[in-house]
Each structure stands twice: as structure tokens, then as C-alpha cells.
């Protein structure tokens, strides 16, 4: 395992957490929550991109996590931490079955099945009266004592998981995943069980998405089927792409930028979609490698000039 840049990670996480301790304004706190959760979803989406697949079912697994955590809290009255982990486990368990079936397909097929699965699951929630139907599930509160510290807690959980996914990416397992992306057949000739590796990658990402869903449920206290439409995955993809996909920092940068922009766009009322859509189009047209790609190129050019 090569250099993990641990000091950077520790520093950035500590700084971000410090910010959440300082921020006492409830509106800013809600934005911080949005960013933490969206960043985790984006990183989860990117993790499956390591095997070269676009996982649109991310939205469905986030929803499954949210509903599982919500049901554990409101129906079963489980403690907070257990409910949260339960959300992740349910998402991962279902993703193993789903992945085992669908990961035999590739590319656009896998993308579009994920899309169909997301919509089907969403309709299933709305049919289930136990889960609150279309009105959604209410009263998913974290313990009272946590109320003030939710932004810190959510960010800490998200940071731990993002770091874990980063470590996995840099490990031998991560190298197998990218090998599958680059050439599945070569990877197979080495004697690897490709499907198993893919399902493992998928399940890990889904666990993270499920936890993100649970955090979402506890942050908002209310969830509804409409929260987990395919747009969740579409936005996560936009975060990844705008930030830059070849590096785990990319999705984080993209998330912070676009979520902040989105909160601003909310004030535009009906024009919100125009603004947000235009921002995404311009970003993919003008920044093919994302913001981090642009920054890296700028940095390299600067370094080259210094070298002379």
C-alpha cells in the first residue's frame, strides 16, 4: 500500500469538523449536512466507477438505507447507531442480490437497469402504508442530546466512510477493480473471479450509500419516496464529473461547489432548473477533467515553468 497522504486527510477532516463546531447557524448547519451526505453519495458512485460502471441504483440504495434506518427508529425503536448501521447493512444485502443478477450486464445496460430499479423501488415505498406511503415517513429523530451536534456527527461518519473507500481504492483490491475496468478479460486470465470482485465493489459502495441514506433520514427527520428518484444519482454524477473523477478529491470539490450553488439557486424559484442545468452543461463542456483536473494542469504548468 503506497502513500495514503494521511496527514492531509487528517488535517482536512479536522478542519472541516472544526468548522462544524463553530457553525451554530441552523441554516448553514443544514447546508453542511447536505454537503456531507451528498459527498458520501458521490464518492460511493465513484467507487463503482472504478470497475467502469455507472451505478444509477445508488439512489435506490440510499433510499433503502434511509427507509431501513427510519423503520428501525420509528417502528422498531432501535437505538440511533444501530438503526444507522442497519440502514447500511440492508442496502448492502439487497445490493449483493441485485448486483449478482445485474453485474453480468455492462455499460448502458447496467446503467439503465439501475435507473429502472430506482424507479421501481420508489413506487414500492409509495405503495407501502407501513412506510408512510407517498406522504413519507415522519419522526426519524436522532437522540435529543445529539441535536446540536448533528452536523459534526454526520460529517464525521461521512469522513470515516469516504476515507475507508479511499484506502480500499489504494489497496490491492482497488487495483483489481481498475484492472477489471481496463480489461476484464485480462483480469479473468489471471484467475480472478470477476463477478465476485464486482459484486464486492458494488456492495461496499451500496453500504456507504445506505449509510448516507440513514444520515439523510436523521438529518431531515422526514423522508418521502420522492427524495430518492434517479435525480439523486444524476446529481451525484454531476458532482463527480464537475469535480473530476480520476481522484477522490474531485467529488468532494464538486459536491461543495454544486450544493452551495444549488442552495443559492433555490431563491430563483422556477428559474432554478435553468440555472442549475446551465451550470452542469457548461462545466462538462468547458472542464472535461473537472475542477481538480484543471487545477492539476495549472499546477503542472506552474511547476514546469519553475523547473526551467
Amino acid at each position: 500500500m503506497d502513500n495514503l497522504r494521511l496527514p492531509y486527510w487528517a488535517l482536512c477532516t479536522a478542519l472541516a469538523l472544526a468548522v462544524t463546531f463553530v457553525v451554530r447557524d441552523p441554516y448553514l448547519a443544514s447546508i453542511v449536512n447536505l454537503i456531507s451526505i451528498a459527498a458520501l453519495v458521490a464518492v460511493s458512485l465513484r467507487f463503482v466507477m472504478l470497475i467502469g460502471e455507472l451505478n444509477f441504483a445508488t439512489a435506490a440504495f440510499m433510499g433503502l438505507g434511509a427507509y431501513a434506518a427510519g423503520a428501525a427508529t420509528t417502528i422498531l425503536h432501535w437505538p440511533f447507531a444501530l438503526a444507522l448501521v442497519f440502514g447500511g447493512v440492508v442496502a448492502a444485502a439487497i445490493s449483493i442480490v441485485f448486483g449478482y443478477i445485474t453485474l453480468r450486464t455492462r455499460g448502458p445496460y447496467f446503467l439503465l437497469i439501475g435507473f429502472a430499479f430506482t424507479e421501481a423501488v420508489r413506487i414500492l415505498y409509495s405503495k407501502s402504508m407501513a412506510l408512510g406511503g407517498t406522504s413519507g415517513m415522519v419522526g426519524i429523530f436522532p437522540p435529543v442530546g445529539f441535536d446540536a451536534w448533528m452536523p459534526s456527527l454526520i460529517m464525521a461518519v461521512a469522513a470515516v466512510l469516504i476515507f475507508a473507500l479511499y484506502v480500499l481504492e489504494r489497496s490491492d483490491f482497488g487495483k483489481i477493480l481498475t484492472a477489471i475496468r481496463d480489461n476484464e478479460n485480462v483480469a479473468r486470465t489471471v484467475g480472478l473471479n470477476i463477478l465476485l470482485c464486482k459484486v464486492a465493489c458494488f456492495a461496499i459502495a451500496s453500504f456507504a450509500a445506505g449509510i448516507a441514506g440513514g444520515l439523510h433520514a436523521f438529518a431531515n427527520n422526514v423522508i418521502s419516496p420522492g427524495d430518492f428518484s434517479f435525480l439523486v444519482a444524476a446529481f451525484a454524477l454531476a458532482y463527480v464529473k464537475v469535480g473530476g473523477e480520476d481522484n477522490i478529491v474531485g467529488p468532494l470539490v464538486g459536491t461543495i461547489l454544486l450544493v452551495t450553488l444549488g442552495s443559492f439557486a433555490l431563491g430563483l424559484g422556477g428559474q432554478e432548473h435553468i440555472f442549475y442545468g446551465a451550470a452542469i452543461i457548461l462545466a462538462v463542456l468547458l472542464l472535461p477533467d473537472g475542477i481538480t483536473g484543471l487545477a492539476r494542469r495549472g499546477y503542472q504548468r506552474l511547476a514546469a515553468r519553475k523547473g526551467h
Binding site: 464529473k241 442545468g277 452542469i280 452543461i281 462538462v284
Partner: peptide, 10 residues
């Protein structure tokens, strides 16, 4: 795909 999502919103 992302381009088309941007177009959808716009």
C-alpha cells in the same frame, strides 16, 4: 449522460 442531464434540467 451528464450533458443530457444538464439539458434535461435546463
Amino acid at each position: 449522460f451528464i450533458l443530457s442531464i444538464g439539458l434535461v434540467l435546463l
